[in-house]
Amino acid sequence: MQERLIRVLIVDDHPLVRLGLTALLEVCDDLELAGEAKNGKEAVELAEQLQPDVILMDLIMPIMDGVTATRIIRQKLPHIQVVVLTSSIDFELIQKAQDAGAYSYMFKNVTIDMLANTIRAAVLL
């Protein structure tokens, strides 16, 4: 019997990043795209609506940033894991995201294997 696919919500304001991450999910048989959000506010709404397993969360975004969205999602929907994926080198910001309840963080130079494995590890929690 095939295991259930891991459903991933992609949150990033940059369309090309969403495009790349979507392509990544497509080549991983156990991962599935649940939806895409352009900012933290959309992420909170879609998390509730789509109930993904894991959220790939950017930090610096318009309207609502990733740290705020992570905090709200982890409070409201503690069963959803948040993995931060950022190009920021602001370690204070990354610490804030972890304090807000993010499972892990990765920089935007990560290999796709590492990224996929981190998503898989997050759901085992």
Partner: peptide, 14 residues
Amino acid sequence: VSQSLFSIHVLAQT
């Protein structure tokens, strides 16, 4: 640029 490069980096690996 850094977002585009990340996208290229991921797409190329896939």
